[in-house]
Amino acid sequence: MSIIQYIQRINIELIIWPVALILLYCMNPAADGTFSLCPFKWLGFTWCPGCGLGHGIHYLLHGDLKNAIHHHVLSPFAVAVLLHRTFQIGRSQLRLKNNHT
């Protein structure tokens, strides 16, 4: 299998979730900016069920469980799900590569 064929078979989630976790790790939750990734905020809603999840994930990735749970109680669960899914897809991709070489 050529490198181009292998790249075409890469599951896009294997790129999206690690990049999202890296960006959340690098974000500054203390910055008072108007930019938000929340589609509810874009639409003018003042309440969102995921509000604070990004900040919670940021704090959890930095080892601050107290602040993570303070910002969103499900942030540890979200990190666990994203890491599990990333490793699951990665393992699947490795099996696919090994079966075709």
Rank of each mutant, 00 (worst) to 15 (best):
F40K: 06
T101Y: 09
K97H: 13
S2P: 14
C38L: 03
D32C: 10
L21G: 01
I10R: 06
M1R: 11
K66E: 15
H62R: 12
M27C: 13
C51T: 05
R85M: 09
N99S: 15
L60Y: 14
I69F: 11
I22H: 02
Y25Q: 02
L83G: 09
G90N: 01
L94R: 10
C38A: 05
H55C: 13
S2I: 10
I57F: 03
C51Y: 11
I57A: 04
P76W: 00
S92E: 07
H70Q: 12
G56N: 01
K97Y: 15
Q8E: 10
L37R: 08
V19Q: 00
L65M: 09
L43T: 02
A30V: 04
L61V: 04
G33C: 02
C48G: 02
L60C: 04
I16S: 00
N67D: 10
G54M: 07
G44Y: 06
L37M: 12
L74R: 01
L83R: 02
V81Y: 05
L82G: 09
C38N: 04
V19A: 13
H62L: 08
L37D: 08
S75E: 01
H70L: 11
M27F: 11
R91W: 14
A80F: 09
L43R: 03
Q8H: 10
V81D: 05
Y25K: 07
N67Y: 14
I69G: 06
N11S: 08
P76L: 03
R95T: 12
C26R: 12
S2M: 08
A78Q: 01
H72G: 03
Y59D: 06
Y25D: 05
D32G: 13
D32K: 15
A20S: 12
K41H: 09
H84M: 13
N98P: 04
L61Q: 07
H72L: 05
V81T: 07
I69E: 03
L43M: 13
I15M: 06
P29W: 03
R95W: 08
G90Y: 05
N98A: 11
